[in-house]
Each structure stands twice: as structure tokens, then as C-alpha cells.
């Protein structure tokens, strides 16, 4: 089944589902299917359970960060200058908001075909970064979605255990984002060491004074 057929099957099977085909310019020819957020979970379930597709194996889950892009174009506008109509060049800037993307590579172990590349996009990169989690469908997404959450900051709704996986729990940013700036000093991050150091200091102060009350 090629991508066009999968697209039309999905459209027929799930009312309201509107997948789009994202073409890929490289010689690999791995085009992908962009699912809308609302129907993504049902569509993914369909992809797994459909007897001809039977994509029972979710191999790879990863995140992508696409920054906001700004395109400027010159437009001729007529304006009144000193009472005379003139054509003036005006630069118009259009800002396309960026988004985060989750990419899933699906294979079928039973039918031995694949990959089907499925993409999901968030609304923007800042406040609306929710996507449906596919972990209830494919358990193999569990750690990988956690990793995407950790490094890209996509929040997967429905994930059973969405915590940081590679960075420590107190870490605040998402290092794989394209606009991530490294902290000047990692020691400023609140780490468990701070509490330990504080305790050690208190202890030292307490034993150094003769009355035992601390400095």
C-alpha cells in the first residue's frame, strides 16, 4: 500500500481525519504522513490494527524543532506624498510561527514492510505544545516520548509516566531546541548537591563553636 492509498484509507475509515502527505526531497524517498492532532490517536490505532497495514512495531520516535521563520517581501503601495499620489516601496514582513514535530517510524513485524513515517505537529513552540501520546498503542514509544519531552519539551497527553529521562529532574530547559542557550555556569542549576553542601556547612559551623550552637 503506498502513501496515497494509506491516506485515502484513513480518510474513509475515520470521519474528519485529514492526513497530508509531506514530501521528502532526498533520494531516500521516505515521504511521510502528517496527521492532525485531533484524530491522530484514532488514526494510529487504525494503522496498527488494520489487517493489511498491521503496523505493529513502532521503531523510532523523535522530535524536531522548527523555529519561527520571517520572510520579507517588497510591495509597491500607492501613497499620498505632498498631495501627489506616488508608488512607494514598502517592506512587509510575514512571520510564520514555528512548531515542534514528533516523528514516528512504523514498521510491520508481521507483514515485514515499512517504514511508514508519521508526523504530528504542535500549534506553536511556546505555550501550546501538546500532542497525543502513542504509548498506549505502542509501548516502545514510552521511553522515546519521555526523551522527546525531556529534550524538546513536547507534552504528550495520555503518557503514563511523563518525566525527564536523560536530564535531571530539576533541569528546566529543553536542550535539543534550536534556540537553546547553554547556561554560563552549570553550578547555578539547583542540584541535589546544594542541599548537601548547605547541610555540611551547617554541620561544620555547629562543631566549630564551643557552645555547639553554630556560628
Amino acid at each position: 500500500m503506498n502513501l496515497e492509498e494509506i491516506k485515502s484509507t484513513l480518510e474513509a475509515a475515520i470521519p474528519g481525519c485529514s492526513p497530508q502527505i509531506v514530501t521528502n526531497g532526498s533520494p531516500s524517498g521516505q515521504h511521510s504522513l502528517l496527521l492532525d492532532r485531533e484524530h491522530a490517536f484514532v488514526a494510529a490505532m487504525f494503522l496498527r490494527d488494520d489487517p493489511t497495514l498491521c503496523l505493529d512495531y513502532c521503531s523510532n520516535v523523535t522530535g524536531l524543532d522548527w523555529l519561527d521563520t520571517e520572510t520579507s517581501e517588497k510591495v509597491k503601495v500607492t501613497q499620498l506624498v505632498d498631495g501627489v499620489e506616488k508608488e512607494v516601496d514598502e517592506v512587509r514582513k510575514t512571520r510564520t510561527p514555528g512548531y515542534l514535530e514528533a516523528v514516528y517510524h512504523l514498521y510491520s513485524m508481521q507483514k515485514k514492510h515499512g517504514p511508514l513515517v508519521v508526523r504530528l505537529r504542535t500549534e506553536n513552540r511556546t505555550d501550546s505544545v501538546h500532542l497525543p501520546s502513542f504509548t498506549p498503542i505502542w509501548r516502545s514509544a514510552e521511553f522515546q516520548e519521555r526523551e522527546v519531552f525531556d529534550l524538546f519539551g513536547i507534552i504528550f497527553d495520555g503518557h503514563p509516566d511523563l518525566r525527564r529521562i536523560l536530564m535531571w529532574d530539576e533541569f528546566e530547559d529543553h536542550p535539543m531546541r534550536k534556540d537553546y542557550v547553554e547556561p554560563d555556569d552549570y553550578e547555578y542549576e539547583p542540584t541535589p548537591h546544594d542541599a548537601v553542601l548547605k547541610k555540611a556547612l551547617e554541620h561544620r559551623n555547629r562543631i566549630s563553636t564551643p557552645d555547639g550552637q553554630g556560628a
Partner: peptide, 19 residues
């Protein structure tokens, strides 16, 4: 050229892929 690819092999530990 701009584009993407996912390649995988059977490494001794399992499917090793690069996207």
C-alpha cells in the same frame, strides 16, 4: 540535498537506526 532519511541495520544489540 535537503531531505530526510532513516536507515537501520541489525546491530548485535538490535535495530540500530539513524534518522
Amino acid at each position: 540535498k535537503p531531505g530526510e532519511a532513516y536507515g537501520r541495520i541489525e546491530s548485535p544489540k538490535g535495530e540500530l537506526g539513524f534518522y
